[in-house]
């Protein structure tokens, strides 16, 4: 029983990170209709920035905040310069551009920080907290769980109760009408990218102490986040966050209880993606989009 609870909390903790990543994917999908394949690499790049700041002697928390700010601005520039020119192109072009972006960011990270695996400090104190008689959990696991909760709540409040959040939702929902009521849609698209990169950076900083930091780190979280986003519905922020949590718990349970489970985690994520797309393409909470012929 304790073992199960332990796995559950570990699953929730990594699921929280997938939830943030999934949320970042949804953010870009909702505002531009693109699935950002480079999301994982962007998060890794941000994490490297945080690492560099820490190396120069900055305390971790300010470093994280600064990283989020830098990622926010960087992503807006990226959207303007690289992605925007192809916004209306057909699928193949858009996918090719994202693959190009993926490769470029990955190799840029490799060129700047090389491919050595680096330890990354946890934002929380070392050691563990004991929850029950013989159940103790690492502070980092608990801390990243709390951070996830905070980020998700903040995003929810932002979209639900602020003027800017409302404008963003409107721009994503109906570009023409939003333009007519005076919303700067182009700015909102850029803002969507910036927010996605910012919360992606948080995910990177939370996962790096567990997986260690190297340029290839973003690949596995990306596929889990993708599975989560599709499971919950890629048009629904709430659904995507929940989907991410479910995928995280599923991953932990399969690794713990199924023989060879650890080796086949990615394959299971793939199966999940395929079956969701086939059985219920809109996901659990996504809206079903009817297309005009």
């Amino acid at each position: 029983m304790t073992f199960f609870l332990e796995q559950l909390i570990i699953g929730l903790s990594s699921g929280g990170i997938y939830a943030i990543m999934a949320l970042a994917l949804v953010m870009i999908y909702k505002s531009t209709g693109h699935v950002n394949l480079a999301q994982g690499e962007m998060a890794v790049f941000s994490t490297f920035i945080a690492w560099t700041l820490v190396q120069t002697g900055m305390p971790l928390w300010p470093a994280i905040l600064l990283t989020v700010a830098v990622s926010f601005v960087g992503a807006i520039v990226l959207e303007r310069v690289v992605v925007r020119p192809f916004a209306e192109a057909d699928d193949l072009v858009v996918v090719a551009v994202f693959v190009g972006l993926f490769l470029s960011i990955h190799s840029l990270a490799g060129a700047i920080w090389n491919y050595e695996v680096k330890p990354f400090p946890s934002a929380f104190s070392d050691g563990s907290v004991s929850l029950m008689v013989d159940l103790s959990i690492r502070t980092h696991t608990l801390g990243s769980l709390v951070t996830t909760g905070a980020v998700l709540t903040a995003v929810w409040i932002f979209f639900r109760y602020t003027q800017l959040g409302l404008a963003l939702r409107a721009a994503a929902d109906n570009r023409e009408s939003s333009r007519l009521v005076g919303i700067n849609v182009s700015l909102m698209l850029a803002l969507g990218w910036g927010l996605a990169a910012g919360i992606g950076a948080v995910a990177g900083v939370m996962i790096a102490p567990v997986t260690f930091l190297d340029p290839g780190m973003g690949l596995a979280p990306l596929i889990f986040a993708l599975a989560g986003a599709l499971l919950g519905g890629i048009t629904s922020p709430f659904g995507a966050a929940l989907g991410g949590l479910i995928v995280g718990v599923l991953e932990a349970m399969i690794s713990a209880y199924v023989p060879y489970g650890i080796e086949f985690r990615e394959l299971i994520a793939l199966m999940l993606i395929l079956s969701v797309l086939l059985v219920r393409p809109a996901g659990l909470f996504g809206e079903i989009v009817a297309r005009r012929v």
């Binding site: 551009v97 490769l103 190799s107 490799g110 060129a111 090389n114």
Partner: peptide, 13 residues
């Protein structure tokens, strides 16, 4: 190392 990723990415775009 990883230079080909950069070249591929740039050339694709």
């Amino acid at each position: 190392q990883g230079g080909s990723w950069a070249v591929y990415g740039g050339v694709i775009i």
